[in-house]
Amino acid sequence: MLTLLTKMTVEDYNRAVDAYADNLYRFVLKNLRDAHMSEDVVQDVFEKLWVKLESVSALKVKTYLFTAAYHTMIDYIRKEKRYQGEELSEMEEPSHNGHYSDLGEVLEEAVKRLPEDQRSVLMLRDYEGYSYREIAGITGLSETQVKVYIYRARIFLKQYIGSLERVI
């Protein structure tokens, strides 16, 4: 349990590492799909937290971490240009040549094909349970935009799953 003090202590910081490092890593990894880069992002984010330890509230540390991770991740993506040319094909009709063993794999494949914004927002919603407002705060989008992205993401996932179920 993190303390309610406004300023974080070293103990709070270490507790935040225990509590959120895995979730943060999952969030970044699922978006970047590169383990080394994701580790770098998580390390960067915690270094930022360490530097700003006294100005970050222990109550808002999780939001701080995810906000920093989201923006660091976006920076990484822009720098690496990893998604150049990919986004054009992301919303194309789903097609898959491999074999899926369960729904989880299908869903994971579908999530990979979501546009960056929709994927991040959906993960924050489903993995971390953030509210629309919190997601808006983390991503810098408006609350309405968050809802629209979630809506579009769900539509796409449903269509993707449905089309594969017909194939399977």
């Binding site: 999952r26 580790e39 989880g104 869903l107 993960m123 993995y127």
Partner: peptide
């Protein structure tokens, strides 16, 4: 089915 289930990932 479109609801994502958080996988267990360890940093």
């Amino acid at each position: 089915k479109t609801k994502l289930v958080p996988p267990r990932v360890e940093f």
